[in-house]
Design a protein around this nucleic acid. Structure first.
Length: 440
RNA sequence: GCGAAAGUAGCUCAGUGGUAGAGCUCCACCUUGCCAAGGUGGAUGUCGCGGGUUCAAGUCCCGUCUUUCGCUCCA
């Protein structure tokens, strides 16, 4: 079985309506993508799967949804204004580019040896800038957030005061972030506009040692629940030279994308860095009063930060398979049923003798419980293949026997096995199958 | 931002200056009684965009946008 290439993913995404290039009719916009009818379902399903797992399934995590535009001071405090940009110089002779802080600007170019060859250092700030108000003076500059985490930190006191949460507790958030990347590549893997699923877990200083491995284990288990292949995932621990200035320890979950192992999610120990910074910059103590011991401290933070849009790409790459069947190729997306854009397809074996009408009625009945799709066009095998290609886990076929005894054929995507099920048992049977789903 | 290559139907591509094409897909009807490609008919393009050369440009030239690969970058 050949490894999937990005070309095939991009092609399938466009062909079947998962993901399109932004502004395509105008020649496209670099690093921006639009989600089509199936793509938005997939993305929303992954988002909801994460949200349920992180909030509903934990009694000590609450959610927020902070605004994308925030006070500029937030980014001064977080270090993004000063650290999120790199002054760069180019060699005028050989066009090589260097970071201005990593090279002696008075020395000859290390590549071509040319002297007095560098351009003036130019700043590449990775934050998008815009203005609030019609009057574009310096005081109105705001940034589109480059990460969602700060929206959580600046609401720490609000959440503590309003939600009766006690340390240890977490705040979860899903939303868009923006980075003015110098280059974008690999489809939606790195784009200027992306969505993050973040959770900041606030703990008593010292207890981060305990919670850090806990969340690493939880987060890896999440991908197993989503049906992602175990051998497509691995941990990468940041070496001391890779650690961000705020981080005490950092692990990435990497996924084996077509272009190699790449970061999918970070689990980072951020200590009290951010809350301390905001204390300094806003002048108000961002601390926590333990209601039992009356101790006052700034909590430490264990952060789980996943890319939703990267998760979408992962789900597509992980699910994609081309299987050889009798000299024919079957393209299948083996999505976990919980994230599949279409859960159940209803297919009449023939159109005549009232079978199609019967199938349409059944489709309407099942809508309340599943995302359904009705298709009466073409041979039955062809319709199965179409559903395989968009990852529909269950197909229901109605035939003449359905008229006699109210049973239908339930066909499973992965095994292609078929079972005869009474119409009245369909919802229960399908929900049971989803609950017990195991990726082969 | 640098270098190279590419951009023609929804997809994969052919078309080296002279009427815009193929296969698949898609739609309708027929056939089909459970795993694609059977029959009949049909739809689809300012050949990425803008300019130039020419009697004539998908084709040659310039610019531009986008994509891919390699740099650079990505705390």
């Amino acid at each position: 079985m050949a490894a999937v290439t990005m070309d095939k993913i991009v092609s399938l995404c466009k062909r079947r309506g998962f993901i399109f290039q932004s502004s395509e009719i105008y020649g496209g916009l670099n690093g921006a993508y639009d989600y089509g009818p199936l793509g938005v379902e997939l993305k929303n399903n992954i988002r909801d799967f994460w949200w349920k797992e992180m909030t509903q399934m934990h009694d000590n995590i609450v959610g927020i949804d902070a605004s994308i535009l925030m006070a500029s001071k937030v980014w001064e405090a977080s270090g993004h204004v000063s650290n999120f940009s790199d002054p760069m110089v180019d060699c005028k002779q050989c066009k090589s580019r260097f970071r201005a802080d990593q090279i002696d600007l008075n020395a000859p170019c290390p590549v071509c040896g040319n002297k007095d060859s560098f351009t003036e250092p130019r700043n590449f700030n990775l934050m998008f800038e815009t203005h609030i108000g019609a009057n574009r003076d310096a005081s109105s500059v705001v940034y589109l957030r480059p990460e969602t985490a700060q929206g959580i930190y600046v609401n720490f006191k609000n959440v503590v005061a309003s939600s009766r949460v006690k340390v240890p507790f977490g705040i979860a958030q899903i939303g868009k972030s923006f980075r003015n990347e110098i280059t974008t590549k690999n489809f939606i893997f790195r784009s200027c506009e992306f969505e993050q699923m973040e959770m900041q877990f606030f703990v008593k200083p010292g207890e981060d040692e305990k919670w850090f491995p806990y969340w690493r284990e939880q987060r890896m288990a999440f991908y197993d629940k989503m049906g992602i292949k175990k051998d497509h995932l691995k941990w990468h621990q940041h070496g001391s030279d890779e650690l961000a200035f705020y981080a005490k320890d950092a692990y990435d979950i990497q996924f084996l994308f077509p272009m190699g192992w790449q970061e999918l999610e970070g689990v980072h120990s951020r200590t009290d860095y951010d809350l301390t910074q905001h204390t300094k910059f806003c002048g108000k103590k961002q601390d926590y009063l333990d209601p039992v011991t009356n101790e006052r401290y700034i909590p430490y933070v264990v952060e789980t930060s996943a890319g939703l849009t990267r998760n979408v790409l992962m789900a597509l790459c992980d699910a994609y398979e081309e299987e050889e069947i009798d000299g024919d190729t079957r393209t299948v997306l083996h999505f976990h049923p919980a994230i599949a854009p279409v859960e159940v397809a209803i297919l009449p074996l023939v159109k005549k003798d009232g079978i199609a009408e019967m199938a349409q009625d059944l489709e309407k009945e099942l809508r309340a419980d599943f995302k359904t799709f009705y298709d009466q066009s073409g041979a039955i095998g062809r319709r199965y293949r179409r559903m395989d290609e968009i990852g529909t886990p269950y197909c229901i076929t109605l035939d003449y026997d359905t008229k006699e005894n109210d049973t239908v054929t339930l066909r499973f995507r992965d095994s292609m096995e078929q079972v005869r099920v009474a119409k009245k048992d369909l919802v229960k049977t399908i929900k049971e199958a989803t609950k017990n789903y195991k990726r082969k």
